[in-house]
């Protein structure tokens, strides 16, 4: 089976989507040829796009942006649609991860991929939504299926089984096996404040409001746009 995995994260460095792909790949690689496509630096070329549409299975792993599919992946989906799939016997799965705690908030993005699948007459497999996505890299040394990685492990296991057997499955929305209040406190203490500090910013600066009057600037830009 030829499986194409599309990492839809636009992050330049390591992403949670990449980690999810790393979790999934060994579970589905036996007797299958797997190709992973990254969309973060350059747009996929003609050869890569033709490769994707000739797959038996397509898996999208991507972050939730503003309650839906990030714009870079949206462009790719439209690009693939334009090329027209040579076969309708292609299974489509997706794993969406989001910043908020509740994996359930990924349900709209999963439905968007389902809609793309219907428009292209492909076979919908399953969607997984994983909450607290920025926490996953912190947990990467804990084996899947254990402790805070319990729910993610179970979901990835079910998904890989369905991919291997070319079956559909119920969409699953999960969060790490971890208290939400703790996650919320930790996100400030271990993520936002230290990252700001590494940029030389004090805590209070994170709350800053932009005061400058950019309005003229914007109007000028608009004028330029009109002239072009």
């Amino acid at each position: 089976m030829k499986i194409s995995i599309i990492n839809g994260s636009p992050k330049l460095g390591k992403s949670t989507s990449e980690l999810i792909v790393e979790y999934l790949t060994p579970l589905i690689s036996k007797n299958n040829s797997i190709e992973v496509f990254n969309t973060n630096t350059t747009a996929l070329n003609e050869g890569q796009l033709s490769g994707i549409i000739c797959s038996d299975t397509i898996i999208f792993a991507f972050p939730l942006y503003v309650d839906s599919i990030p714009s870079n992946l949206l462009r790719l989906l439209i690009g693939l649609e334009k090329r027209q799939f040579p076969s309708q016997n292609i299974m489509v799965y997706c794993v969406v991860n989001n910043g908020f705690f509740e994996g359930k908030q990924n349900h709209i993005a999963v439905k968007q991929i389902k809609s793309w699948c219907a428009i292209n007459h492909l076979i919908w497999g399953q969607g997984i939504g994983i909450g607290a996505g920025e926490m996953l890299p912190f947990l990467k040394d804990i084996p899947l299926g254990h402790g805070p990685n319990k729910n993610i492990g179970n979901a990835i296991k079910q998904l890989s089984f369905n991919i291997l057997t070319r079956q559909g499955g119920e969409d699953l929305f999960i969060s790490p096996n971890w208290p939400r209040f703790l996650w919320k406190v930790q996100s400030s203490l271990f993520v936002w404040y230290p990252r700001a500090k590494s940029n030389g910013l004090k805590k209070s600066r994170l709350f800053e409001q932009v005061q400058k009057n950019y309005l003229d600037n914007i109007k000028q830009l608009e004028q330029k746009g009109k002239k072009q």
Partner: peptide, 27 residues
């Protein structure tokens, strides 16, 4: 409308709009 959502340009603008919010969470 694309797949029940916005077009790439509009979505791109919305993706670039998160500085409107703070990084901190509330329930």
């Amino acid at each position: 409308c694309y797949y029940g959502g916005y077009s790439p340009f509009v979505k791109n603008i919305l993706d670039r709009s998160i500085p409107f919010l703070l990084p901190f969470f509330k329930i």
